[in-house]
Design a protein around this nucleic acid. Sequence first.
DNA 1: CTCCGGTATT
DNA 2: AATACCGGAG
Length: 345
Amino acid sequence: MEHWDQATIEAFRATLLTWYDQAGRKHLPWRQDQAPYRVMVSEIMLQQTQVETVIPYFNRFMAALPTVEALANAPEAQVLKLWEGLGYYSRARNLQKAAKYVVEQLDNQWPRTSATLQALPGIGPYTAAAISSISFGEVVPAIDGNQYRVFSRLLKIDADIAQAKSRQIFYDAIAPIVDPKRPGDFNQAIMDLGTSYMTAKNPDTINSPVRQFNAAYRDHVEANYPVKTPKAKPVKQLFVAEVIENEGRLLMAKRPATGLLADFWTFPLQEISTIEAIAGEQLTIKPVVHVFTHRRWEIWLVRRQQRGLQANEKMMSRDELQALSLPKVQHKLMDVLDSLDLDAN
DNA sequence: CTCCGGTATT
DNA sequence: AATACCGGAG
């Protein structure tokens, strides 16, 4: 690992922030006004989700629920509807819990440090540091995938970023480099660097504003960083999805309160061991495929007659469905169904 | 297809 | 430390 002396650290800060002031993504809606509520909402949305995807969701969310009190007092169904399609729905539920906590337990006095912000549900070490540095000026690194990638290359850090224990190694390496005068801008500048020149694939190091600080580039080993062990492949699972229509209503089943897509409504899904279980019954040549981190679902649509309803099941009209927050996989199933009906006409 | 990515739970 | 949780981009 490289060691930077104080002069190098100061030169790096100056170079980075000069570039950020000229070329940083100042137009991002959550950077217009960096009040903690806005930063919290944006950072939770940005967990595991790309900037371009988040922008319209963030704007709708802030228009509908402009203050932490508005979010705390909103019906959960409204919050989930605003989140519809973003995925990782526990983020939305925890976000509202965090808002309630700030309003009801803290009398609207925000925690101002990374350590205390982590008491809020859904706020871990990265998000806490992002909020505290951007909104309150705390001098801490906000270590996300961008910071791992950027500093692993700049400093040739060999710790495996897939390992939890590597976090401390990166924290210790980055903390002395964070600009004490502009910690929030420093963190956001690293994010911008990580999504422009210092990308995961095909980095444009030759044009990077901090090329001269890049030890991995200097030594022609940039492709070796960050060090990351590959993750396991998702397990394949076969399902049959029942389409039961009656008088314009569809039979929907509510998923269990814990686990995958908790409490969300989908067509009734039954796991099958082989396609033979529904021989000839399927409506399409190929299954609907939906992949999670750890599971790959292959879902065969079948049409069935009206039957008795289980406790978690309900016949729903199209209007009722439209009002609900439905997971992407259910939208895929309904889209395939609609395209079949279209072909029939 | 493959790859990417924070937090909570266990 | 390992696993669960989603959708989008290339």
